[in-house]
Design a protein around this nucleic acid. Sequence first.
DNA 1: AATGTTTGACCTTGC
DNA 2: GGCAAGGTCAAACAT
Length: 319
Amino acid sequence: VAEACMCCFWTMDTAPVCLDLMVGRPMDHEPSRARCTGTRTEADVASSACGRAPSMTNDEAKILEAKLAQVSEENRKLTEMIAYLYGNQVSRQSPDGEGQPRASTAASPTPPASKKRSRDSTGEAEHVDVDSPLSNGTCRRIKVKKVCTRIDPSDTSLVVKDGYQWRKYGQKVTRDNPSPRAYFRCAFAPSCRVKKKVQRSAEDSSVVEATYEGEHNHPHPTRAGELPSCATQGGGSVPCSISINSSGPTITLDLTKNGGGVQVVDAGEAQPDMKKVCREVASPEFQRALVEQMARELTGDQKFTDALAAAILRKLPDY
DNA sequence: AATGTTTGACCTTGC
DNA sequence: GGCAAGGTCAAACAT
């Protein structure tokens, strides 16, 4: 089973990768055997084993079954560990304000009624389409996010500022919209395969729709480079930011930051007591307590420490 | 010279 | 196979 499939796992650039971990079997067994069909089941493996040993006794079959169960369990644990690591990476590296838990990983291929929320006083609106799997049911999956931004109608540049560096590689006039659609690639990292399409809304020319395909495999350029004032001043800083909206303050833990820091993004519309909360939250005492609490939570999670140890070991040369 | 943009041609995909 | 539309390439051009 282990030899068959630790596959159907996604790399950062969304291409499927076959991870043949070869758990529970000697390295020199049938190296040329076909692998990674994507649909291979335990029954397939069992039947192929039967094919090789037609005269198998009941005892042998039971032993094989027990081994199968054991290896299945090992596979399950490994899969969980990889998924856990991958999930953390994805949530840290999502573009521009992502990182919240996904609402659903089994979204319909046809975009459902997207969420729409007011973002700030500029009239910006955001549509989020979560996980658009391919219709063929293969293991390839590309995250698609749509962002609508209100801009000056006289501005024809089709530039949506999101903090990332983009390189334009094409422009096309589409059938259903008189305004051209611009195609951008992420220019920050050559290996980053995120793409962005920008086009004015057909209904409202003052609105541009930016569609992001894929996820960045690098930190946010502005966030990675920034050193918040409280971090540079030597105070006990926390890798998180606080944003406030009508529904209350949101504390975002950003593990991609070097040092990080607490920033009150917008307290203009906050209630007076909310401002007080913000001051308390931004205080060194609170930050220290927050760090300690986070450390306790993380180190107390056996899954996390196991995954972290495995990740560190993988980074060691010649491991 | 290096880097980014423009734009016509070409490729891919679905019908 | 033909067609249409979207997506990408790459030479020319601009900065």
